[in-house]
């Protein structure tokens, strides 16, 4: 009935990020880090993987002179 889940999502942090983003319109990198409890480095790697697979969209901008990364589900 259902297709097999992409192995890319068989990883705790990536699945957490996807579950989180499915529930909201968009979220900042810091918000995702707080919610998942991941380290910034690890989260950054996993977000890039999800973005490469086009599961999520990553928008980079600036907020009060600080870089701001916003993620949303494609």
């Amino acid at each position: 009935m259902f297709n097999e889940l992409n192995p890319l999502l068989h990883q705790q942090l990536r699945l957490s990020v996807m579950s989180l983003l499915m529930n909201v319109k968009e979220a900042d990198f810091t918000y995702i880090r707080e919610k998942t409890g991941a380290t910034a480095g690890n989260l950054s790697v996993q977000i890039n993987k999800l973005a490469e697979a086009e599961y999520i969209q990553v928008k980079k901008s600036f907020k009060e002179n600080y870089p701001l990364t916003t993620c949303s589900v494609t």
Partner: peptide
């Protein structure tokens, strides 16, 4: 959280999904 953990049980996947949904609900 671990860097790579390729296989998760269904229960574990569900637990992650549920906890993320709960955390945004709040």
């Amino acid at each position: 959280m671990e860097n790579e953990k390729s296989i998760m049980s269904n229960e574990e996947s569900l637990r992650i999904i549920r906890s993320m949904i709960e955390s945004t609900k709040q």
